[in-house]
Design a protein around this nucleic acid. Structure first.
Lengths: 166, 166
DNA sequence: CCCCAGTAGTTTAAATTTCAAGAAAGGGCT
DNA sequence: AGCCCTTTCTTGAAATTTAAACTACTGGGG
């Protein structure tokens, strides 16, 4: 005699899984907090906003359609819209109409924004390095990347990739 | 002739490191978003708030000093204060004066809050499992836990641990 | 051409988080 | 006791994020 399907005992996490999960949650909280403060102090913007400038700097002609930028950064269009409004006030980014589609907008990294990025990048890389990569073996770095990729891919809507950004 | 110290070329990330870092950032964004939506839909609270209920449920007598709970959850006391105010409005948590220290407050998980937690836990565990552990080999789970622990420990203020929570 | 479902992006309000400041109590010192 | 510094927690305002509604445009049929 088996238990009814809707009363199945859930598959709780094993000890190893529980340990990994709690460690991840802690690492995450601490890291996000740490990097947010570092960037807020040194560059005057939160980590996610910095990430937007980075994506733009990688794109051809330093510009990207709003939807593409949102997809690259894994944030909602609404959130991006607010963020760009703020970055525009700072003069780091500029909005530009898309010629081919009247609905579209391009977010363009300004020269000033690019300067801010170049100024902030070394300190940020150093912070990331100190928090993560200087503490891991090359083997662990490989494992970390592989594992994160698996998780990210699993949560990714099919074919949601933008070829020109990785 | 060497470059002046303050003009050193920063140690940029290697390709492997860059790959790992971008993968992590994406996994993180997608995961946080996914779990926030799952819990908001199924239990009516964000992931961090759920985490607070979990910590309380693990504590003896289902209660914890504010500072201890904040440390366990790796959030600021200010953030916790606001969060508890909200959870209190929902009736999931109750504030209680600390007998031994008149400055202190205990956050206490109410019976109702515990019920909410028990109701939400299976679905949440399932979501975590589907997003992470069902996609990794046992070996990778071990690696993931080890790596996250190293990162978390590196960002942890010395001796900030609370013995009664892990 | 007109209609219509879908897409791009914005906007509003509500919720959450951050930041800086502040109230209250503890604890050591003289 | 009185003073000083620290710890605990809260508060209020500003910044950011979320959720849902909304405008404008596209593209495909009839």
């Amino acid at each position: 005699m088996t238990t009814p399907a809707d009363a199945e005992e859930p598959r709780w996490l094993t000890d190893d899984e529980q340990h990994a999960w709690q460690s991840y949650l802690q690492a995450n909280m601490l890291l996000e907090d740490h990097l947010d403060r570092q960037l807020q102090r040194d560059a005057g913007l939160p980590h996610v906003y910095y990430g937007l400038l980075v994506k733009l700097s990688w794109a051809p002609r330093h510009r990207l359609r709003m939807t593409e930028l949102a997809a690259a950064a894994k944030i909602t269009r609404s959130r991006l819209s607010h963020a760009i409004t703020r970055l525009e006030k700072n003069g780091w980014v500029r909005r530009e109409d898309c010629p081919s589609d009247k609905r579209g907008q391009n977010a363009v990294l300004t020269d000033e924004g690019f300067e801010v990025l170049k100024k902030a990048a070394p300190g940020h890389v150093e912070a990331v390095r100190a928090a993560i990569f200087d503490r891991l073996t090359p083997e662990q770095i490989g494992q970390f990347g592989d594992i994160c990729r698996i998780i990210a891919d699993g949560l990714q809507p099919e074919g949601a990739d933008l070829p020109w950004l990785r």
